[in-house]
Every structure is written in structure tokens, then in C-alpha cells.
Amino acid sequence: MDDFIKGCRKGIPIALGYFPVSFSFGVLVVSSGLPLGLATFISLTNLTSSGQFAGVSLMLAQASYFEVAMTLLLINARYFLMSLSLSQKIDKSMNTLQRLIVSFGITDETFSVASIQDGVLSFPFMLGFILVPIIGWTSGTLVGETLMNFLPTSIQNAMGIALYGMFLAIIVPASAKSKPILEVVLVSATMAIVFYYIPLFSVFSSGLKLIMATLFGAVYGALRYPVKEEITS
């Protein structure tokens, strides 16, 4: 029970960061003319940001199921890497059902925060830790759908930066304490910027660009500054 509460507590900042993003998702879906309730249903079953936005634009374009599947798999391929990484950090005695449950909650943010916890991740901890963000993400969309256009646009716009503020609150302190992490962060940021602005790369989906920029940074770090075993255990 202690672990569960601890997990919930760690999940709160993530849930707060999610709220404005999933709120905008709700607003977007309703304002693009899709039926009420659809956005919340998507948020509850998908729990991801870029994939949901991409999926909705595909639906609006009446894309085939195959196109939807391919795009989503490409965007979400990064989760494969994160899931693999977490497989090394979770309690080895977790059974299959527990693993099936925990893996539903893997997102960029839960993964990052879980990875930097000390020690192994127990099932109760992970349960609380994913439950709170799931609630934050789903309720944000529900409120967005319901109260669409209630908030002035200026506030809605400003809310867009909250999630990135959270990301910076994770990478900046880590970079200040570790030169290898700083260099990894800089390499990945540089590659992401290159992929974003150079027209040559516009043929790649945003998910693929994200994977490539991530791998550039992480491979660079792994080659130049291999970590000792105790860090991952």
C-alpha cells in the first residue's frame, strides 16, 4: 500500500502536465465536428499524445484502417524501446497479468520519471504511478470536450507549454549534474532540430524523426560514456 501511495504521488506532476494537453485534444476533436464523447473514449483507450492527434487527423481524412495502423505503429515505435528499457527495471517477479497492466501506462513521461527512480519498480508502485496520469489524461479530455471554448484562447495557448516545462524540469537538472547526460541532450536536440527544419527529412513521419533523434543521442552517449552496471540495476 505504501508503494501504491508513493506511486500515486510521483504520478501527480505528470497528471497535471497532461491535463492542458489532453484538454486541447478534447477541444480539437469536438471543434473538428467529430461526435461528443469520442475524444474521451480515445484518451481513455490510447493514453498517448502524438498518436491521438495523428489518428484524429487521419479519421477526418477518412483514411483506411491500414493507414491508421501503419501511422500509429510508426509513431509509437518509441514505446517499444521504452518498454524494453523498463523490462530491466521492474520487479522481476511481476506476473504476466501485472506486466500487461503496467505496460498500458508507458508514455514518454511515465517512462522518463520511472527510469530515474532509485531501485526496482514494484507492481503497487507502478499501479499508482500510471493510474493518476491515466485519470489526468482522460479527465482533461472530458473537461475539454465539455467546456470547449470556455477558456479564452490566450490561456489555452499558454497551457500548451506546460508539458515542455515538465520535460525541461527533468533534463536540465540531470544535465547540470552529469556531463554525459548534457551531451546526450544536446546531440538529440540538435538532431531533432535538423530533422525538423531541413526539408529533405520532411518525408519521414514525426514519430520516425523522434526515434532517429533519440537514437543519435543515446548511441552517442553509449559509445562515448558507457555506464557502469550499477546505474541500471
Binding site: L163, L168, A192, A218
Partner: peptide, 25 residues
């Protein structure tokens, strides 16, 4: 092991830049 250790920081960095510049319209 090293790769997986660096992945979280690399992902967050790649997610943030340059997208943060367009997050508020």
C-alpha cells in the same frame, strides 16, 4: 545498458526541441 540509460534524456530532449517554440502559437 548504456543506450537504455540515456534513452529517457534523449527522448525528452528530442520531444522538446524545437517543438517548444510552437507550443503556444
Amino acid at each position: 545498458q548504456s543506450l537504455l540509460f540515456y534513452v529517457p534524456y534523449a527522448v525528452l530532449s528530442a520531444l522538446t526541441f524545437p517543438s517548444i517554440l510552437y507550443a503556444t502559437n
